[in-house]
């Protein structure tokens, strides 16, 4: 991995997929995210950790402008993906979200068949013209999400009938079927058992060969296992950002140390 990022606040780097400067988010009277500057690298997993309510999920939802759907949310500051400001008037949030996929905390398969769940994105974006192409995309996405072997004989069964871990992998397959460049994951394993969690983590590790993955997690072990870079959020601020190994073994900020040793959070 090309890593020209320095420790502490993320600073300019040529390889940054996402560059965030001076980001502020308000929910009504609550100042949820304050002054966040960060550069997120391509083809790597970046973990966001921090105690509940620290703003990490809110920050994540800024990256595909999902906060637009919440009337009370107000986002200011600059977020550039591949150098283009996503708040620019020319950027359509609908197109942006096709490029920046998202996987949510609770598996949320649509009330449709497994096939239609995965085909949903490609269909609405008109990515495929023929049924055979669509089937190909479905198969490829399910294979990448390590779910194909379990569901290949029942693609027409409802997606809601799968187990929790399978549902979450289905949601990942659904997200990658639109061929995004960035994958956002908001605590994707928080409702899963340890075996399903291990499968998803293995999957995340494979996904980083193609996507920039940004994952919010409550589990520091998970952050340490799957990510190359970690950002620690506390009270709406990004306290520390750096190489995962470094952050967990030799944190620069005393608050980070307190959190990873279990004294706050």
């Amino acid at each position: 991995m090309k890593d020209t990022l320095t420790e502490g606040r993320g600073t300019a780097a040529d390889t940054a997929k996402i560059a965030v400067r001076g980001l502020q988010v308000h929910y009504g009277d609550t100042h949820a995210v304050r002054d966040v500057d960060v550069d997120i690298p391509d083809r790597a997993v970046t973990a966001l950790i921090g105690p509940s309510g620290c703003g990490k999920s809110t920050f994540l939802r800024c990256l595909n402008r999902m906060n637009d759907t919440i009337p009370a949310a107000r986002v200011t500051g600059e977020i550039r993906i591949d150098g283009e400001d996503i708040h620019d008037a020319r950027v359509d949030p609908v197109q942006l979200r096709a490029k920046v996929g998202m996987v949510f905390q609770k598996p949320n398969p649509f009330p449709k068949s497994i096939r239609d769940n995965v085909a949903y994105g490609p269909k609405i974006h008109g990515l495929t013209r023929k049924r055979s192409e669509l089937d190909e995309v479905v198969e490829k996405s399910l294979r990448r999400a390590a779910l194909w072997d379990e569901v290949k004989n029942r693609l027409d069964a409802p997606g809601t009938g799968l187990s929790g871990g399978q549902q979450q992998r289905l949601c990942i397959a659904r997200a990658i079927a639109t061929s995004p460049e960035i994958l956002l994951m908001d605590e994707p394993c928080s409702s899963l058992d340890p075996i399903a969690t291990a499968q998803i983590e293995e999957l995340i590790d494979e996904l980083r060969s193609r996507f920039a993955v940004v994952i919010v997690t409550h589990s520091m072990q998970q952050a340490a296992r799957v990510s190359q870079r970690t950002a620690f959020f506390h009270l709406g601020r990004m306290v520390e950002y750096g190489d995962t190994g470094k952050l967990f073994t030799n944190p620069a900020d005393p608050r980070t140390e307190s959190y990873i040793t279990g004294r706050i959070g």
Binding site: T69, V94, L96, R97, A98, M102, F104, P109, A175
Partner: peptide, 23 residues
């Protein structure tokens, strides 16, 4: 969560209503 899932995939509001919410 279903609406979020659909919007997160780049569906518009009316696509989300027609294909996810109404079913």
């Amino acid at each position: 969560s279903l609406r979020d899932g659909s919007l997160g995939l780049g569906a518009t509001r009316s696509e989300t209503i027609r294909q996810v919410v109404l079913p």
